[in-house]
Amino acid sequence: MSAGVELSHRAMAMLRAVAARRAVMSCSCEPDLFIDGFACCDQMTAHALARSGYIRPAELATVGGRVAAELTEAGQAALKITAVA
């Protein structure tokens, strides 16, 4: 995922869950996403959202620890664009 690439419906659902403060993520080079306490079914998309700068940990933690996930400015912009459409 990079600039100019359309996000899938699943990726957008993940962003909405993060925005609703229902998600936590592990702190690692490939962070896993957990929504409502359950591991996200598509960790490849979760990794891509983090790598592409749409989501990030809300705070620092030790490697492997879990913290709240938050949207970056890019993640917020992606949600605003689709809300208008």
Rank of each mutant, 00 (worst) to 15 (best):
R51C: 06
R22Y: 01
C27E: 10
D42V: 02
L7N: 08
G4C: 04
A17V: 01
S26N: 08
L71T: 04
E59L: 06
E30Q: 12
C29W: 12
M1N: 13
A78G: 08
I35L: 05
V67M: 03
A58Q: 09
S2I: 00
A74T: 10
L15N: 05
S52F: 05
F34C: 02
A85N: 12
E59A: 15
A20I: 01
A85Q: 11
M1W: 13
G65S: 11
V5R: 11
A11K: 15
I35S: 02
R66D: 00
H9C: 01
R22W: 02
R66G: 00
A23S: 12
T82G: 01
I81Q: 14
A77K: 11
V18E: 01
I81H: 14
L33D: 04
V67T: 07
M14Y: 15
A69G: 04
G53N: 08
C41F: 10
A83W: 07
A48V: 03
V18H: 04
C40W: 08
A46F: 08
A61E: 05
M25H: 09
R51M: 06
R66A: 01
F38M: 04
R66T: 03
R56L: 04
M12I: 15
A58P: 03
D32F: 08
R16F: 04
S26A: 12
A77E: 06
L49V: 06
T82N: 10
V24T: 15
C27M: 12
L79M: 04
A46H: 12
A68Q: 10
A85T: 05
A78C: 07
A23K: 04
A69R: 01
V84D: 08
R10I: 11
A69I: 00
M44T: 11
A68M: 06
V84R: 15
S26T: 15
C40N: 13
Y54A: 01
T62H: 13
G75V: 00
A58G: 13
L49N: 11
L7D: 05
A77Y: 06
F38W: 04
L71E: 04
S2V: 02
E70N: 07
A50C: 10
E6K: 15
A61Y: 04
T62W: 10
M12G: 03
G53P: 08
L7E: 05
A46D: 06
A77L: 06
D36F: 03
A20T: 02
V5K: 13
M44L: 09
E70S: 09
V18W: 03
V24A: 09
E6I: 08
A13I: 02
